[in-house]
Every structure is written in C-alpha cells, then in structure tokens.
C-alpha cells in the first residue's frame, strides 16, 4: 500500500505491506532505530511515538493506517524535546536508555496538552512507559523540570 507520512516534519512516501507496524517501518524501511520495540504487544510503551499529536504505541499501529498523518519520533528536534533531553540528562532520567525514546515522546505529548502538570498528572501520563532499570524518579523530576523551564 502507498502511504504518505510526515515524520518529524519531513514528507515520506512509502510502499508497505498492510500488516506491518509503524514501528517496524520506521526501524527497518527508514532506518530510524531510535524508536524501540521491547514487547511488540502494547504493554511496555518503548515504541511510543506521536501520531497527529497523540502518544500511541507504534508496535500496534499499522503504518498503512497512518496515511496523511504526522508522526513525531525521538529523532526529531523541537524546543520542547530539547528541553526534555536536557532535563532527562540533568536528572538522570534513564539508566540503560532503552525505554528513553518512548518516555520522551510520552512526556512531549503530556506537556503539549498540559504545559504545567502536577506530579500526579505526570505519574498518570507516564504510567504506560515501563522502565525496568527503575529510573522513574529521575523521569518524574525531569518532566517537571522541563515544564518549569518552558
């Protein structure tokens, strides 16, 4: 199927089999391996990207269902994403870093909608992104700090 996507502001035209996930197409066809797949069944949040502004699981999203959509991934560069990068660094919001791309994209979605979230709102919005290393404290502080800096 022919699919037109705008990824991090860049237009792409792709020919993909209908059952292929957005995560797979990003990683394989576009070599954008920043988006990680850790469970491939919608449970961990590692593959989170923004689809027309919503934080979605790219492992359970057909690329073919995203025609004419805007996709934002960790490879992008926006002032908000840069602020979050700095804050994750300053607050050690990661250990192994495998969940980090998904964490960042969930944080972007949260702060776009709720620029000054409470701690409880941060916890609610980030609860779909598992971090097995347990860097959550730093993640929570980083999201709060990025909001403050905004």
């Amino acid at each position: 199927m022919q699919v037109r996507l705008t990824i991090n502001g860049q237009p792409h035209e792709l020919d993909v089999a209908p059952h292929r996930s957005l995560a797979d197409v990003l990683r394989t066809d576009l070599a954008m391996t920043g988006t990680k797949v850790a469970c491939a069944e919608g449970t961990c949040g590692s593959c989170t990207v923004l689809l027309d502004g919503r934080a979605v699981l790219s492992c359970l999203t057909f690329a073919s269902a995203c025609d004419s959509s805007k996709v934002a991934t960790v490879e992008g560069s926006t002032p908000l994403l840069e602020r979050l990068r700095d804050a994750f660094t300053a607050h050690d919001g990661f250990q192994c870093g495998f969940c980090t791309p998904g964490q960042l994209m969930s944080a972007v979605a949260l702060l776009q909608r709720t620029p000054r979230p409470s701690r409880a709102e941060i916890r609610t919005a980030m609860a779909g992104n598992l971090c097995r290393c347990g860097a959550y404290e730093g993640i929570e502080q980083a999201v709060a700090a990025a909001a403050e800096a905004g």
């Binding site: 960790v74 490879e75 990068r85 994750f88 870093g97 980090t100 960042l104």
Partner: peptide, 9 residues
C-alpha cells in the same frame, strides 16, 4: 552518553 540516549542515536 546522555545525548546519544535522548536522541535515539
């Protein structure tokens, strides 16, 4: 390694 981990590189 923070930059590499936060940019997906």
């Amino acid at each position: 390694s923070a930059r590499a981990r936060t940019t997906g590189s």
